[in-house]
Design a binder for these strands. Structure first.
Lengths: 136, 136
DNA sequence: CTTCATGCAAATAATTTGCAGTAAG
DNA sequence: CTTACTGCAAATTATTTGCATGAAG
């Protein structure tokens, strides 16, 4: 994917097969943990080592290309950095959905109530997704 | 503290010195990670082992006496389970403050927009706290 | 060519488990 | 007394690092 080559170049990172595979894999999965990511990439690049994976994840985080996603009760996951959004974690099918919602009203309330100056937010909702709800 | 003895008894857990120390320590600190907790308890109970600490944390989580707090860029922390609240994480002094805010409006928006049925939420705000703001 | 990234193995850190002894109720 | 809990050591699992080789630009 050309898109990722450009992103890497912008941070002076070389576009190795491994790095591109990591980015594409995270991109198509949306949210993924190290172990799953490793297994998926191994299928395409049998020589991929975990050291490389960890090093790349850390580098990509440092350059703000990736973002960590810490969900309750789950192993740490990663996603491609995008505009701020809310995570909807379904307790039935275990999938994570992203949703874009206006949160200014909430931010306002919090600021005026506490004097805290909000820079960014991390919001996860736990519940049951549309699909699982309609299954009953 | 009698309060914790009652809580433990309600879950058929014995009130050992170690357990009470863990609970009191987490209670007074608000949010604390394993390593810090271990060092603090060692001061009071020099024989405390990490195996016991981990086992107890897991048991207390299983009985919903503790709750995990996963903050961005931080080691996993724990807190005594309380009513739902929002975490305010200050990027200057690194402290976490709890705040109780009405979130129904946001929940409503999310539900109607996505069809997701919310059961609980985990919300962290990153920014600068009142104290640090006034220091300038 | 030059520099940076990879793979392997070894090192370190984090967490869990088995088991014999100890304390809570 | 009986059962559950603790501490220690060993076992697993997760993550990082050093170094020689290989690939990207």
């Amino acid at each position: 994917m050309e898109r990722f080559k450009d992103i890497l170049k912008a941070s002076n990172l070389k576009s190795t097969h491994q790095r591109l595979a990591i980015l594409e894999c995270i991109d198509t999965h949306g949210h993924i943990d190290i172990e799953t990511l490793f297994e998926l990439i191994l299928q395409k690049y049998p020589t991929m080592s975990k050291a490389t994976l960890y090093r790349n994840i850390n580098d990509l985080l440092a350059f703000y290309i990736l973002e960590e996603v810490k969900l309750p009760q789950q192993k740490q996951k990663y996603e491609i950095k995008k505009v701020p959004h809310i995570h909807l974690l379904c307790s039935q099918c275990d999938t994570v959905e992203d949703i874009f919602v206006e949160t200014n009203a909430l931010f306002e309330t919090i600021s005026s109530q506490s004097g805290f100056q909000i820079q960014k937010s991390f919001i996860v909702m736990n519940g049951v997704c549309k699909r699982c709800l309609s299954k009953k």
